[in-house]
Design a protein around this nucleic acid. Structure first.
Length: 820
RNA sequence: GGGCGAGUGGUGUAAUUGGUAAACACGCUAGUCUUAGGAACUAGUGGCGCAAGCCGUGGAGGUUCAAGUCCUCUCUCGCCCACCA
């Protein structure tokens, strides 16, 4: 790292951040400045950071960007008289701690304690005003008691169930994973190719909440991109299920179609290779073995993830037919590699108006029909000859006869009604969202609080007996057999059935990392309650989270899971709001100075410890807020940080200008800047435009240096800066003789009278080009402005010998003259 | 393939929402002070041009007295999702 030290100016002798910053943090700690009141007499504001996973690396300068923003915002809210809840905790279960423990033969519990301590020190060093009395840790039994409690409630309501369906299995992490944990078919954590593996697992019925999760997105004050990601992830689609039967067999089934407009073009049916119906279809046929071999080949390819979606388009005819579904003939049933077994019914009717079906039919010479034609005649001929694939919203429907001439898009609802009325099928809604695979075959997670009894089957652990404490083990290695390492602890596994007192075994799977974070925000409201997840009075006061800040990477996992659990807790009466997080802001990532993600691997990591030591926490904070728009990704630049340091030094030096003279010095122009800045800062903090706040404050300081600064006005400046630079402003505030902390002062109001100026600049444009500008009194009329303008030589020059054709006048802004 | 977003000086970026493009900051140039400067302060700093002036917000059109901002087309980049019938 380039040395920061070189840029520290000589004035540092006076502004000694190394002395000031720790001093004030100690005093704030002693006076409980950051403690959140339990009284409910003031309006509340709940502002939350996505709590971190405390890794062994500690924080780099990119991490605190969001923390600083919420810190600024919460200080600002406090100065506006709000009772602010601004807490922090640790999402400490998860694979890295466990893998580290395996590698170094340490204990994840001990390692977590070390990591948390380090994170906390770093956060305190930056001057973040968290109320540490409410600190939580997902790995604390007193905390995960309630995570387990929620699971038991889900189980009781039938929203948690055991499944034996094939799931995503990471061969390297040796655990099952949820759909949300994959990236392009690979393990999000280690990058291994995921296999499909049938095994017993716990699954949460998030799909029961799909509709509400979708609908309520509309009311959230969240970034549009996140809302759109969630909508896509839920993937609601409306269509019909056609009822069909297999010719010569006693098999009935349904096929889902979300675009049934072209249903009369359907000429064949495809079924997923792994579909259970396949065996019944081909049983006893001459091609039974060939088909089953083919199926095995495809299934194996898919299981090993060697199936190439783009290029592997394979299928085989089953020898069976769908019996005349639409009165236009039987449809041959094929097995096709591209059909998904777990979407819709796993069986699909195909036509020339679906691109994949089109390509499949071409490859296997299955006959086509076309019922949708373009307006363009040449193209229509090509479509008729099946030379090109065609499906466009403005394509014209040819059949059924009743709908001939309608476009593809306008016929949709009508066709659906037609299909339903004719009894061919029923309306059906499908979702892309899958139920949440909730068990992990690993050690470092919350034990699933369930007992398997020989007689009673699955029995939840009684609420009185929660938490089921994660036992200490000698070896954390995953077994790889689909059992967690807990399975080897016989003393722990063997237990009694809570119902019949007979022999029983504990569930050895643990919960995924997302469990503890799906409800943690609630616990901050009442972090030490041993009787309830959260006291309902406290919940009613604090909920919902007013402002939530974190990275975009949680768009479709944490933020969906938490909304799901919250809605469930709403249904069970634990919480009083439908949604957990009203407003969401995403911080842009801070990259290394080489424009790459900060990582040990690239050697571009900047440690906040060094920055704080060299230039101070306040400089770090101001710089991170100033460097660019909050939501935008941006590269770190230690060189640019100097500007923020200089800015604070100038604020510091203003002390020399203050005399206890005879009150405020009259300077209208400066007061205008001051009050405009109050207005701008007040508004821009609310809008998360921190970069422009700092720049406005810089302008203000530049102006303050040029005037006789009154003590009152200096104090206003300090208050505006206090949320950003809490230490230096507190020090100067005290130097000015104030006894109480600046952070409990009232936010300054701007004086509306002082922000209006008497004069404005009017620009003169001649034929669209700005040629001159001058000051006039506010409200000066057109005639007067024209008179002044035409007298100016730089205007007269452009108008000499020309006729005025048109004059455009916008009061207090512009005089636009058009000549011939 | 689908969705979302972004393209402005040497650099990070700003622009009262259609009204003097480049505020603020970094860097750079010159000067002052200094034993010294990698400190501070002062002045300057979009491009071309001696100048008058012309050009300038990815590109091409358009609307308008006036466009970074609105419309049409287009190019480039980033992120997320992706066999979802």
């Amino acid at each position: 790292m380039k040395s920061v030290k070189k840029n520290i100016p000589a004035v540092a002798k006076n502004y000694d951040h190394q002395k000031i910053e720790p001093k004030w943090r100690k005093i704030w700690d002693k006076t409980s400045l950051n403690k959140t009141s339990d009284k409910t007499d003031k309006p509340k504001f709940f502002i939350l950071d996505m709590f971190p996973y405390p890794s062994g690396q500690g924080l780099h300068v990119g991490h605190p960007r969001g923390y600083i923003a919420t810190d600024v915002y919460s200080r600002y809210k406090k100065m506006h008289g709000f009772n602010v809840l601004h807490p922090m905790g640790w999402d400490a279960f998860g694979l890295p701690a466990e893998n580290y423990a395996i590698k170094n033969k340490t204990n994840p519990v001990a390692q977590t304690v070390i990591n948390v301590k380090r994170y906390k020190e770093q956060m305190e060093m930056i001057g973040l005003n968290y109320d540490w009395n409410r600190e939580i840790n997902t790995t604390d039994p007193a905390y995960y008691k309630w995570t387990q409690w929620i699971f038991v409630q889900l189980l009781k309501k039938g929203l948690a169930y055991e499944s034996f369906a094939p799931i995503n299995w990471c061969p390297s992490c040796k655990t099952g994973l949820a759909n949300e944990d994959l990236e392009n078919g690979k393990c999000e954590r280690c990058g291994s190719v995921i296999e499909k593996k049938p095994m017993r697992q716990w699954v949460l019925k998030i799909t029961d909440y799909a509709d509400r999760l979708l609908k309520d997105i509309d009311d959230l004050n969240w970034p549009e991109s996140i809302k759109e990601s969630q909508r896509n992830w839920i993937g609601r689609s409306e269509g019909v299920n056609f009822k069909q039967e297999v010719k010569d067999l006693e098999i009935k089934f349904e096929v889902y179609d979300s675009i049934p407009q072209t249903f009369l073009a359907q000429t064949f049916t495809v079924i997923a290779p792994e579909h259970p119906m396949v065996k019944d279809l081909v049983r006893g046929t001459p091609q039974e073995k060939t088909v089953l071999d083919f199926v095995e080949m495809i299934v194996d390819k898919k299981r090993k993830n060697k199936f190439d979606v783009e290029n592997d388009l394979e299928g085989i005819f089953t020898g069976r037919y769908v019996k005349n579904p639409f009165g236009t003939g039987d449809l041959p049933i094929w097995i096709a590699s591209y059909v998904l077994v777990d979407y819709g019914t796993g069986i699909v009717n195909c036509s020339a108006h679906d691109e994949r079906d089109f390509n499949f039919a071409k490859k296997y010479n299955i006959p086509f029909k076309t019922v949708l034609l373009p307006k363009d005649d040449d193209l229509a001929q090509k479509v008729k000859r099946n030379e090109v694939f065609y499906r466009q919203p403005d394509g014209i429907l040819q059949s059924p006869e009743e709908f001939k001439g309608l476009t593809w898009s306008e016929s949709r609802q009508k066709i659906i009604d037609y299909i339903v009325n004719k009894g061919l099928g029923e309306r059906k809604v499908n979702y892309k969202l899958r139920d949440w695979v909730f068990s992990r075959q690993r050690y470092w997670g919350e034990p699933i609080p369930v007992v398997h009894c020989e007689r009673c089957g699955v029995v939840p652990v009684p609420e009185k007996e929660l938490p089921v404490v994660l036992p200490k083990v000698k070896f954390y290695e995953p077994t790889g057999t689909g059992e967690s390492p807990l399975a080897n602890i016989e003393k722990w596994v063997n237990t009694k059935c809570p119902k019949c007192k007979g022999k029983a075994k504990r569930e050895t799977n643990t919960m995924p990392q997302w469990a503890g974070s799906s409800w943690y925000y609630l616990r901050y409201m009442d972090s030490k309650n041993s009787k309830a997840l959260v006291d309902s009075k406290k919940e009613k006061y604090w909920a919902p989270v007013d402002l939530y800040v974190g990275g975009t990477e949680h768009a479709t996992r944490h933020l969906i899971y938490a909304r799901f659990w919250h809605k469930f807790l709403y249904d069970t009466g634990v919480v009083s709001t439908k949604e957990p997080f009203m407003r969401l802001k995403n911080q842009g990532m801070i990259l290394g100075s080489d424009n790459r993600k900060m990582s040990k691997r690239w050697g571009n990591v900047v440690n906040p410890d060094d920055v704080v030591k060299n230039v101070g926490a306040d400089t770090l904070r101001v710089y991170e807020m100033f460097m660019g728009p909050f939501e935008q990704e941006i590269s770190w630049s230690t060189d640019n940080m100097v500007g923020s340091r200089r800015f604070l030094e100038r604020v510091w030096k203003l002390q020399e200008k203050i005399s206890d003279g005879n009150g405020p010095v009259e300077n209208k122009e400066f007061e205008m800047i001051l009050h405009r800045t109050i207005k701008k800062v007040t508004e821009d903090i609310l809008g998360f435009n921190f970069n422009t706040v700092i720049s406005a404050l810089m302008i203000l300081i530049n102006a303050a240096e040029k005037v006789e600064l009154s003590r009152d006005n200096y104090e206003i400046i300090l208050k505006l800066l206090a949320p950003f630079a809490p230490h230096i402003t507190e020090e100067i505030w005290a130097n000015l003789g104030n006894k109480k902390s600046i952070h409990i002062q009232t936010w300054p109001d701007f004086d509306a009278k002082k922000i209006v100026s008497e004069n404005v600049t009017v620009v003169v444009q001649i034929n669209g080009k700005p040629r001159a500008n001058f000051e006039v009194a506010v409200g000066t009329a057109q005639a007067e402005v024209e008179k002044i303008a035409y007298a100016l030589p730089e205007v007269a020059k452009w108008m000499a010998g020309k006729q005025i054709k048109k004059v455009m006048f916008i009061k207090e802004k512009i005089l636009s003259v058009i000549t011939d």
